[in-house]
């Protein structure tokens, strides 16, 4: 594993250094995770759980996810260098040394546990750390380079944030909390495989066994369609369990059927032209499904 030398003439002023460390945390990816955390808190409370609790939990959640992302960039710096999407990351370009990225990630993880533990409870803090461990240990170190199920099983890390939010409010994990976890868990395959279709060459060059690389484009489209059905089924379970009402049911069905329409168009498309629309809609879908849950809870 090597890192490139910093390009000559690039100023590394204090602001640039701060920006690089912020980039290590992948803030854009984290924003959606935090959205599910916050919404889960409102669902758990059945209303406003208190803005200070929400704020501190979101800060802790950012630190945990940011720490996981920093450690991920330390571990994956060899393949990040090969992939066009990731070849400008701070560790790859040498703007942040691998050792510092690792130390930064560990420090953020410790900080997250302290922030969440002291502001809410230690179950929520432990769950935040569990998310970090799942992302680094199960996804990045174990499955990403060895299994076509990497983002299915490894995707469980991204489904932990609603558990953190729920536990921060209630101090425990009920069936409803696990259903929120499941909504993100089953959303991840169609979401990520739509992205993987667009990045197939990158993943192939890096030797990452994403579904389109191993089973091909057509099978991936088919799997996206099938997993969208499963995702819709899971999204209805809050109503089936009695935790949500008619407003949420209608919202989940409408949002899910739009997702299904896009997945169907992608499946029928001889090319992958609908992958981009499917991917972008999947982001909107997850945000809106959690908004619908939170609104329904009031």
């Amino acid at each position: 594993m090597t890192t490139r030398a910093m390009p000559a003439g690039v100023a590394a002023g204090p602001l640039a250094v701060v920006v690089d460390y912020i980039r290590l945390t992948k803030p854009r990816v984290i924003s959606l995770l935090l959205f599910t955390t916050g919404a889960a808190m409102f669902v758990a409370e059945g209303g406003n759980p208190g803005w200070w609790l929400v704020l501190w939990t979101l800060i802790g959640g950012y630190l945990a996810a940011g720490g996981a992302n920093a450690i991920n960039q330390y571990i994956d710096r060899d393949i990040d260098d090969v992939m066009h999407r990731t070849d400008a990351r701070p560790v790859v370009t040498g703007r942040v040394t691998p050792g510092r990225a690792l130390a930064f990630g560990i420090a953020l993880g410790v900080a997250s546990a302290l922030v969440i533990g002291l502001s809410s409870n230690w179950l929520a803090a432990a769950l935040a750390l569990l998310g970090l461990v799942l992302y680094v240990g199960v996804y990045t170190l174990w499955l990403k380079r060895t299994s076509i199920h990497n983002i299915v099983i490894g995707g469980s890390a991204g489904a932990v944030p609603p558990l953190v939010g729920w536990a921060a409010v209630t101090g425990d994990l009920s069936l409803s909390a696990w259903i929120l976890f499941a909504i993100v868990f089953y959303w991840t395959p169609p979401h990520f495989w739509a992205l993987a279709l667009m990045l197939k060459r990158d993943y192939a060059a890096a030797g990452v066994p994403m579904l389109p690389v191993v089973h091909g484009v057509e099978e991936t489209k088919r799997q996206i369609l099938l997993w969208t059905f499963v995702m819709i089924a899971v999204s209805i379970l809050p109503v089936a369990s009695g935790a949500a009402g008619l407003f949420y049911l209608v919202s989940a069905l409408v949002l899910g059927l739009v997702f299904l329409y896009l997945s169907w168009r992608l499946y029928r498309d001889p090319a992958i032209g609908w992958a981009k629309a499917t991917f972008h809609y999947s982001l909107l879908y997850l945000a809106l499904i959690f908004v619908a849950l939170a609104v329904d809870a009031f």
Binding site: L226, F229, V230, I236, V239, A240, G245, L246, L249, L253
Partner: peptide
Amino acid sequence: MRTTALVLAVLFALPA
């Protein structure tokens, strides 16, 4: 409504 939702969930999940 719970029963309807449960049936819908199974209908969506099972074939997939």
